[in-house]
Structures are given as C-alpha cells and as structure tokens.
C-alpha cells in the first residue's frame, strides 16, 4: 500500500547515500570534459581552452598507447580464460575428494589468498621471483642459470597472469562448487550402475551440470576485457617491463598523477571507460537474455 508519508521516509533514507554517489560518481562523469580541453587547474574547467579531439588524436598516434592497449588485452584475456578453466578444474577435482576433513583444510587454504592485498603479495612474489628467490633456487637444481624474472620482459606477463590465477582460483571455484552441490546424487548413482568410471562421471554428469554456470560466468567476464588488474601490476612492475606489462590503468595513472598531463590522461581513461561501458552492458544483456540473470 502506498502512502505519501512513507514515501517521504523512503526518500529521506536514500538521500545521504545518493548524495554521495552524485558528488563522487556522477559529478566526475561531467569532469570528463577536460579530455576535450587543455585543462589548466588554475583556470578551472570553464576557463580552460577547448581543443576538440586533439588528445584522442595524439593517443591513437602514439606507439606507446597502442602497446599499452595490446598489453591490457593480452593480460586481461589470458586472465579471463584461465580464471574460468582453473577454478572449474579445481572444483571438479575437489568434488572427487571424499575425505571431508582434508577437503575442508584444502578449501580454507585456497580461499585465503583472495583476501590478501596485492601490496603484501607483491612483496612476497618479489621475494620468490627475485635473483636469489625460490624459483631460481629450484630451477638451479636443474641447471637453469638464475634470472631476474620481475624485470624480464620475457617473464613478466607470465608472472602477472600466473600469480593472479594463484590468488583468485580458490575463491572463484566457490560458485562452481555450489553448482556441483546442487547435482542430484541419484544421477551419479544411475551413472555408476550403468558402469560409468570416474572420468566418465565427470565428463557426462558433473561438467554438463555446471555448464550453465560456466557460460554465465564467462559472459559476465566479458565486461573486464580492459581490466588487466591495476593493483597487481602497479605493485609488481617497473620501467624495465613497460614493454610487456604497462596497461591502460597504470598508464593513465602515470600520465595523470606523475606527469600531470590531466587532459591527456583523462582522454585515455575515457576511451577505456566508454568501451568498458559498452562491454558490461552487452554482457549483462546477454546474461539476462540467455540465463535469466538479473542484478536487481
């Protein structure tokens, strides 16, 4: 039942939160106009000169921007693909383990990295991949000469993708484990009676049963094609690996905050936001259409 009195209360309950969103999210959206100016902070947005698409033209002409876009796509797409394959495989494997206490312990351990910050993990992985770290010690046993992996363009992307999978696969598996739990045990029994072995059960029962979840998660991942992981790369990269590890977000940061090229940085950021907006909208639309997924 509607009542004007209650609606006044409802609006009052919304007002502070919406106010914060207006100030810190909506107002900055209008701030993107500085991408079309030569913005000078002292003159403000109204006083700075309009330059049209100058910064966008410069952006597409710069080889370093093309490189940054390529790095972003390579790293983000690799992460997206592996962050589906690895959690699914892990969930299937874990489901095959019948010793419950061991299962609990493994779960507790693999979920943990998700909750640790990249700042901390950055220090830990820098130790591990350093000239005298574990990786070089282990490979040394096989006669591989030590290398500085964190500053090697040949290794950096692999480290970024691998350590990201390491951090997220356990937590990412939860959703597939939940889907596996919903499988009717009778189906497994029927398969066993029909003489299906372990691999046949996985292939013909488990995987088809979680197929819709896999498709849904893949669709939703489409929105992060330009998100290669700022926090991680920022805490692990250095100028020596810009060629393979610099991504749009780190580039925007350096141009904007370090070099104070406000307008140019905003132009690059806007390019990313606009494409991401289209991709996320597309992925939600697809997820909604084919999987009845809704967020609200």
């Amino acid at each position: 039942m509607r009542s004007v009195k209650n609606e006044i209360y409802y609006n009052a309950m919304m007002v502070i939160g919406v106010g914060f969103l207006l100030v810190f999210s909506i107002v900055p959206m209008f701030g993107v106009i500085i991408a079309f100016q030569d913005f000078v902070p002292a003159r403000g947005m109204l006083g700075s000169a309009w330059v049209g698409l100058k910064h966008f033209n410069r952006m597409f002409a710069l080889a370093e921007v093309r490189n940054v876009i390529r790095n972003t796509l390579v790293i983000a797409l690799s992460k997206i693909i592996l962050n589906i394959i690895v959690p699914v495989s892990f969930a299937v494997l874990l489901n095959e383990l019948k010793i419950i206490p061991v299962k609990r312990v493994v779960q507790t351990v693999v979920y943990l990295p998700h909750f640790l910050s990249w700042v901390i993990l950055g220090i830990m992985f820098t130790n591990i991949f350093s000239y005298t770290g574990i990786v070089n010690q282990v490979l040394g046993l096989f006669g591989v000469p030590p290398q500085m992996y964190m500053i090697s363009n040949g290794a950096f992307r692999g480290i970024i993708i691998g350590t990201d999978v390491w951090k997220t696969f356990g937590y990412g598996a939860i959703i597939y484990l939940a889907a596996i739990t919903n499988i009717d045990p009778n189906v497994y029994e029927a398969a066993a009676i029909d003489g299906a072995g372990r691999w046949q059960r996985i292939w013909y029962v488990t995987l088809p049963s979680i197929q819709s979840t896999i498709v849904l998660m893949s669709t939703l991942a489409l929105g992060s094609v330009l998100n290669a992981g700022f926090d991680q790369i920022f805490t692990m990269y250095s100028p020596l690996v810009y060629a393979t590890g610099d991504i749009i977000d780190t580039y925007v940061y350096r141009m904007g905050i370090t070099k104070m090229q406000y307008s140019f940085s905003t132009a690059v950021g806007l390019f990313k936001s606009a494409i991401s907006f289209i991709l996320i909208t597309l992925s939600y639309t697809l997820a909604n259409k084919f999987a009845d997924y809704t967020i609200f």
Partner: peptide
C-alpha cells in the same frame, strides 16, 4: 534511484576528474 546506482557501477569519470572533485 536504482538506475542511477547501477549507472555508477557501469561508468565512471576516471582518475583525474574524481581526483579534482576530492
């Protein structure tokens, strides 16, 4: 309200415009 909130999830003004507001 709902659309406004979801819109802020889909699009953002970016680093520098947000910095300027703060």
């Amino acid at each position: 309200y709902m659309w406004l909130m979801v819109f802020t999830m889909l699009f953002n003004g970016g680093l520098i415009p947000t910095y300027l507001v703060v």
